[in-house]
Amino acid sequence: MSILTLNNGLLLASDGSVNPLYVSADLALWTLIIFGGLLFLLGKFAWKPIIEGLNAREQCISDKIDAADKAEQQARTNLKQYEEKLAGAHDEAAAVMAEAKADANSAKEKIVAEANEEAIRTRQRALGDIETAKSEAVRELAESSVDTAVGLASSIVGRALSKDDHAKLIAESVERFSSPGA
């Protein structure tokens, strides 16, 4: 008979040769002993350390993750602080710079103003000197020309003029000299 023809023999055989559902008492008993013994031995010697070891490792990993989280948090706060500090330093530097610039500006202005003043003063002094020298020269010229004229006149007139005459003549001469320039 082929596999294609199902038959009653499938369940009727008592020795288990062609009955797929046949339960062999020997094999069942043996399985009971083997599996029971395996359960006991493995539970005692293998699964306990394995499960405990895995739990311990898991605990260790989760602890380390927590620690890493904490460290990251710490690093973040530190970074923030440093960034704030850095920003403060930047502002300070800018302020110092601005101050220095302002100082330099004011110093420059002061120097320029002083120099201007000095120049003006020098010019004025020079002008004053020129004026003084001019009037001195005019006076000296007048005096010497009076003297010359007196000398000439004395020699011409032949007589010495009095002191009053000299003064009168000097004043007339100065008048004469200065009037065209006035």
Binding site: F45, P49, I50
Partner: peptide, 23 residues
């Protein structure tokens, strides 16, 4: 076969247990 599987399992998992417990 059952006996062989049981003995193999016992040896392998005892070995594994020691390894895992070592950390």
């Amino acid at each position: 076969i059952e006996l062989v599987v049981a003995v193999l399992m016992f040896l392998v998992f005892c070995w594994l247990g020691r390894k895992i417990q070592s950390g």
